[in-house]
Amino acid sequence: MSKKVLITGSNGLLGQKLLDKIRNNSQFEVIATAKGEDRYCEEGYIYESLDVTKRDEVLNIMNIYKPDHVIHTAAMTNVDACEAEKELCKQLNVDSVAYFIEACKANQSHFVHLSTDFIFDGANGPYDEDAAPNPLSYYGQTKLESEELLKQSDIDYAILRTIIVYGVVKDMSRSNIVLWAKGALESKKSINVVNDQFRNPTLAEDLADACILAVEKKAQGVFNASGKDFMSILEIVERIADFWGLDKSLITPISAEGLNQPAKRPVKTGFILDKSNAVLGYQPHTFEEGLAIMDKQLALIK
């Protein structure tokens, strides 16, 4: 018996990586959803347009397909945009989850939800799953609110928290740190890079694997799902330059204060992955392995 899996945000980076991995897998019957037209455009799944901020649309799609599992990747993740457009951010990051909780309860569906390191203030990273949250930005606040909705619900759910997702697909809706740094340095542009914030960058394929493991095991509770390498944003960019043999003299280290970003960022997040390793069998790539995977994919797209 194949499991029915409904994916939200299937046009995004993570959504497309999930389709790469499960659309031709006989274990799964896949319903891909996103707002507007299908940008993935392959075979092996059903596509439905879905605006997750509309309760009626969510309930309708869920009642039609009655999926065993939902992987909810759709979200507003631009941290500064969330600060500027709080109502839209709330609709996408909190209200949508409330609608899916209602629909999952009616259809007895297991819900896999994506969350973030930005629920933490960055004072005590790296964090395990039981660390106390304290978001500094509206984005982080909405993601924490969505987690709380799930914890207070009586549906089956897994929350996967992640950090700086990078990767490449043939139809990118937005850039990420690797594509940005590589593109700028290849164009011989000088770039300012923060040297006082620390993260675990996450390969999109690894995060997709974590989602699939959570489905296969019908995982319950909170799991960290990031990359394994912990470093500063500056080191991330320097390692990108080293990997592709680009000019590191174009990189100027600056403090986060120098960027004057609208949303406050945590200084030092990072995740401890012991629980995900043990319970899910989650084994992410090293950063350089992730860059090598991207390099092969970029060669195919050109």
Rank of each mutant, 00 (worst) to 15 (best):
M1S: 14
K4Q: 06
L6G: 04
T8I: 08
S10I: 10
L13T: 09
L14A: 01
G15P: 04
G15L: 00
L19E: 05
D20H: 13
K21G: 03
K21H: 04
I22V: 11
N25S: 11
S26W: 02
Q27W: 01
Q27C: 08
A32W: 09
T33W: 07
A34K: 10
K35W: 14
G36R: 09
D38I: 10
R39A: 10
Y40D: 06
E42Q: 14
L50D: 07
L50R: 01
D51N: 15
V52G: 03
V52K: 04
R55Y: 03
E57W: 04
I61C: 14
D68I: 02
T73D: 02
T73Q: 08
A74K: 03
A75W: 00
A75G: 13
M76W: 02
T77Q: 09
N78C: 05
N78Y: 12
D80N: 15
D80P: 05
A81N: 11
E83C: 13
E83Q: 15
L88W: 07
L92F: 06
S96D: 10
A98S: 14
Y99S: 04
A103R: 07
A103F: 03
C104D: 06
C104F: 03
Q108G: 07
H113K: 07
L114Q: 10
S115H: 01
S115G: 04
F120A: 05
F120R: 04
G122N: 05
A123Q: 12
N124I: 01
D130Q: 12
D130K: 14
N134Q: 05
Y138D: 00
Y138I: 09
Y139H: 11
G140D: 01
S146C: 06
E147Q: 12
L149C: 08
L150W: 03
S153H: 07
D156P: 04
D156Y: 10
Y157Q: 08
L160G: 02
I163W: 11
V165T: 15
Y166N: 07
G167P: 05
G167M: 01
V169S: 11
S173L: 14
V178F: 01
L179I: 15
L179C: 09
W180C: 08
G183K: 12
A184F: 08
S187K: 15
S187R: 15
K188N: 15
K189S: 11
I191V: 15
N192S: 14
N195R: 14
D196P: 06
Q197N: 05
E205H: 06
D206E: 03
D209V: 13
A214L: 03
A219Y: 03
V222N: 10
V222S: 08
K228Y: 00
F230S: 03
M231Y: 10
M231V: 02
M231D: 04
S232C: 07
S232Y: 09
I233C: 13
I236K: 00
V237A: 09
E238Q: 15
W244E: 11
S249N: 15
S249Q: 13
T252N: 15
I254E: 00
S255N: 12
L259K: 14
Q261I: 11
K264M: 12
R265P: 02
P266Y: 06
P266C: 02
P266M: 03
T269L: 08
T269E: 03
G270D: 04
F271K: 00
L273Q: 04
S276Y: 01
A278E: 14
P284S: 10
F287D: 02
G290D: 01
D295G: 09
K296W: 00
K296S: 14
Q297S: 10
K302H: 11
